[in-house]
Amino acid sequence: MDAPTTAAEPKINPAMWAVASVVFVIATVATLASYMPDTPPHWIELTLLGLGALAYLVAVVTLVSTRVFEWATFLNVAKPAFIAVLAATGVIEFAFLYDDTRGFSLTILTLGLGIVALALPLILAYSVARHVPSPKRSG
């Protein structure tokens, strides 16, 4: 049996990309707030949110391309984390809807919450799984 090894770490690991996606979402929401009661130019919001989505996609691609990784631990952490984050973001979304937030603002906020709900479990699960020794794959 091969000796256990820890995951081969990319230069910018998936958790860092996922954190970047959360930072872009925060920047999007802060920009939205700075223009209230008006809405900011759509291209600013869409660009920031697009960069957030792109950073998250890069996180997923970097994660999937990690050749040696303890996926069982990753999923063990990611699943409950996703449920917890979904509950929290769900309540925040409920507050937006109840407050009659509508139109472009609601779309931006909902998409932002969606990215956060996906990014946080990835950050937590990767942070834990990267330190778990994994058997080397053959080939």
């Binding site: 959360v22 946080l120 950050i123 937590l124 942070s127 834990v128």
Partner: peptide, 8 residues
């Protein structure tokens, strides 16, 4: 919180 405290 998301990048350092919670993961740590």
């Amino acid at each position: 919180a998301f990048a350092i405290l919670l993961p740590s």
